[in-house]
Amino acid sequence: MATPKGTHFVITANFIDSGAPAYRRSDGSWSTSLQEAHPAATEAERDEMLAAASKEESVIADPYPFAVRLEGSAIDPLTAREEIRAKGPTVPIRRPDAAA
């Protein structure tokens, strides 16, 4: 399927300590928030970021890119899967905050 015009890419993975979704910032560090991710504007930039992420296996596991749309300053995933990963389950969980 062709990539829609204006599509950006975010590099994601899972933190190895918690398994939580990890999003790559512009400085190469990792955030749990999709909104702090660096959106790559080109496939070349995406591939470069992914190659760098693949060398950070002491922090994260299984990095991969996914497509997003930029709405102002907000980053919106194009798939339900990535939206759910970013926001959490859409169904009730007993104790949403593990620390609570």
């Binding site: 899972n14 918690s18 398994g19 939580a20 979704p21 596991a61 299984d62 899967r81 759910i84 990963r85 959490g88 389950p89």
Partner: peptide, 9 residues
């Protein structure tokens, strides 16, 4: 028995 899922292990 340890899987990696969407949000956590």
């Amino acid at each position: 028995g340890l899987y990696m899922q969407l949000h956590a292990y």
